[in-house]
Computed example of a mutant assay.
Amino acid sequence: MLDVIYYAFIAIVSIQVIYYTLIFSRFSFLKTQNTAPKTFPVSVIICAKNEAENLKQFLPSVINQNYPDFEIVLINDASKDDTLDVIEHFANTNNNIKIVNVKNVEAFWGNKKYALTLGIKASKHDYLLFTDADCKPVSNNWIQEMTAHFNENTQIVLGYGAYKRIKKSFLNKLIRFETLITAIQYFSFEKIGIPYMGVGRNLAYTKAAFFKANGFINHIKVRSGDDDLFVNQVATKKNTAICFTKESFTKSVPKTSFKAWFKQKRRHISTAKHYKIIHKILLALIYTCTLLFWVLSTVLFAITYNWQIVLALFLIRLIIMYFVYGASAKKLLENDIIFLLPVLEVFLITMQLTIFINNLISKPNHWK
């Protein structure tokens, strides 16, 4: 049995080294590509549900974008607060804002995809850029940076949606670490020709791609996944690009309690079972190997079985991980969390396992 555990540990470390060196390094050591800015008209689409205060705070950063021709489609998704009043106030002072006021209908009650579909249909431009009401572009060149990657072949652009840094908060570091790891994965898989997801906080695609796929119809009954499930369905190695210039980032307000974050991640993780089979296999292998790495190494260290070799493999894996993740963290301005990498990784895989078990027991809530 000890031999089985030992050789399983060697196999796990080998698989992880392959992932780090052949896949994740594709993004980690990728140089920023300078692309010529475009001037075609763009529709920025923001779906808001009970987001009055966030719109007051963050919408001006979208309105003040340095781009020659864009409209902002603001979707009020049956809000119960003052969201519609706030939207109307901004519309009265900015002539490039279009309001889509969505009321609940029985067939699509509480379904963000229904609201987004109405917003997309109401938009007047062919290039669509999405963010959330609690997001702020980090620069006035956000639209310019994201749309610069569109061309005759590229119909989808995957961006990075960061979270605001909160000092002396372990939860905040955990949230940003999970966001960093997710970005490394979807950016890296895109670079090897297997794009599988994007985040709605910072995502662009063409209206033609949306209507060619019949919108969200293939997963309309799955209440989450207006971003990742759509990308999973439509993205190919030929029609997808990534954008990771520092001026292209958006920054969101993170959860400040474990309970709220746990609830949010339950919704996000629940969509993964609807991914294409190859994506599910690759992602499951990443998680399983990470979990087994920590479990098996702990067992082998505890019984001091071939501990010198186990320690060497343990350190090799950590060094490569630090090297690859560190380069990506520098690109995405998340350097401060790398120092806690092993601790954050253990906490994250534990939380993900707990979320997976909870989702098996009961379905998570969706879209506020």
Rank of each mutant, 00 (worst) to 15 (best):
F244K: 09
F9D: 01
A162Q: 06
T288V: 10
A133I: 04
G110R: 04
L2A: 08
Y196W: 12
Q352Y: 13
K173M: 12
Q16G: 03
D227R: 05
F177E: 06
E247F: 06
F90P: 06
F27V: 06
V324N: 03
M321W: 09
L59A: 05
I120T: 05
F108T: 06
K164G: 01
F29L: 09
K273P: 00
F258D: 07
I220V: 09
I281Q: 07
Y20V: 00
I192W: 10
T304N: 13
P68C: 02
N239C: 11
H366I: 02
T182Y: 10
A91Q: 15
I99N: 08
Y19W: 12
K255Y: 14
F323I: 08
I303L: 04
N141K: 14
A284M: 12
A213N: 15
I357F: 13
A327S: 13
L59F: 05
I337S: 03
I175K: 04
F150G: 02
F9S: 03
I242K: 04
F347W: 09
A241H: 02
F244H: 15
A52K: 09
G193L: 09
N64W: 02
T350A: 14
L174P: 03
K38Q: 12
L285R: 11
L30Y: 06
V102I: 15
P342M: 11
N335P: 00
L292K: 07
F187L: 05
Q185E: 15
Q308Y: 10
N214H: 13
G193P: 07
V100I: 15
M351K: 11
Y205A: 04
N66S: 13
C243E: 15
T256E: 15
I46R: 03
N172M: 08
I355S: 06
G215W: 07
L128S: 04
V138R: 04
F210K: 05
L311S: 15
V73K: 03
A162M: 06
T154A: 08
Y6F: 15
P254D: 06
V299N: 01
S43N: 03
T236S: 14
Y325D: 09
K113H: 10
K363W: 00
S297L: 02
A52F: 07
P342N: 10
S362T: 12
V73T: 10
T179C: 14
A329W: 01
I99Q: 10
V44Y: 02
D132E: 12
W142Y: 13
I166L: 14
K31T: 05
I269L: 15
T32V: 11
G110V: 06
V234S: 08
T290D: 14
L332E: 04
I18N: 08
I181K: 13
V13A: 06
T35G: 00
N104T: 06
F58I: 00
G161C: 13
Y322C: 05
T93G: 09
F258Q: 10
F210V: 04
Q144W: 00
V199Y: 11
T240G: 08
E145N: 13
W367I: 11
A122Q: 13
N95E: 13
V157H: 04
T93Q: 15
I72P: 00
E152Y: 04
K173E: 12
P41N: 09
R201D: 01
Y325E: 12
E247M: 10
L129T: 01
I99D: 01
A208R: 08
I192Y: 10
T182Q: 12
A36H: 11
K124H: 13
L283F: 12
T350L: 14
K113Q: 12
N96E: 01
Y6M: 05
S270M: 07
V295A: 10
K168M: 02
I175A: 07
